[in-house]
């Protein structure tokens, strides 16, 4: 009981880091999902000029040092960057040094993982089933909604969880792009990093590390359960 007390006895800043990390990861996951499905479909089925270029761009964050990705984000989406200035002027959206910027960095870093998972499940769909649905009167939109989407659901769930987990752990691009401001952009990894940099911070770093592990495990188990349920519906177990 005493250790549980110790675990939950977080300072307001530590609580803020936990809440922020969950919020950033959830937002990153939800907002990148539609684009992730679209890009996965394009890469799995599209035949167009520049497909390998698109594939390369999507996978770039996986290969580049996270600091490079973060720096590129800063150049593009910073207040003076072309995209950043445009978004602020016309939509009032600011990314730099805000939690939204952390979410953007996490989404971009996790995007290749999400696309890969969904793309694999799209490639596994038997297109003959879609043809059959077409002969039964379903137009392409209905075919997608009633046949393709349910069949790739396990891949979508896997992609979402991978994205969430990657976003929870993202550090390099986030700290480069939006820095490490407690209560605004200090996510769990940034907070742990900060603890390791100050004397007597070991206890706080350990607390947050255990909390990270619990969140990650919960997410993985949840995805496992959801994917199994989806797979049972498809009866491919």
């Amino acid at each position: 009981m005493q250790s549980l007390q110790w675990l939950l006895d977080l300072t307001p800043d530590e609580w803020a880091a936990v809440r922020l990390s969950i919020r950033v990861s959830t937002v990153a996951m939800i907002f990148s999902l539609p684009l992730g499905i679209a890009v996965a479909l394009l890469l799995a089925r599209g035949r167009f000029w520049g497909k390998s270029v698109l594939n390369g761009i999507v996978h770039l964050p996986l290969i580049l040092p996270p600091v490079v990705t973060g720096y590129l984000l800063l150049l593009t989406f910073g207040r003076r960057g072309p995209a950043g200035a445009f978004l602020e002027q016309y939509y009032g959206i600011v990314f730099s040094f805000r939690w939204t910027g952390a979410a953007l960095a996490c989404a971009i870093m996790a995007f290749p993982l999400m696309v890969r998972a969904i793309r694999l499940s799209v490639e596994a769909v038997d297109r003959k089933l879609e043809t059959a649905a077409g002969t039964l009167g379903a137009n392409p939109v209905w075919v997608f909604a009633t046949i393709t989407l349910p069949l790739i659901l396990p891949g979508i769930i896997a992609g979402m969880i991978l994205c969430f987990a990657k976003a929870m752990g993202e550090f390099g691009a986030t700290i480069t792009f939006v820095s490490n401001i407690p209560g605004e952009t200090q996510t769990l990894p940034s907070a742990i990093y900060t603890f390791t940099q100050i004397p007597g911070g070991n206890s706080g770093a350990m607390r947050l590390t255990i909390i990270s592990i619990i969140i990650a495990m919960t997410a993985l188990i949840a995805s496992e359960v959801l994917a199994r349920r989806a797979a049972r519906r498809l009866a491919i177990e």
Binding site: L129, T135, A138
Partner: peptide, 20 residues
């Protein structure tokens, strides 16, 4: 006329039932 507007039923050699 696209296939979904033809109203022509098609029974395939491999039944192609929807598994889900």
């Amino acid at each position: 006329v696209p296939r979904h507007k033809r109203r022509i039923g098609y029974v395939f050699q491999d039944a192609r039932l929807f598994p889900h």
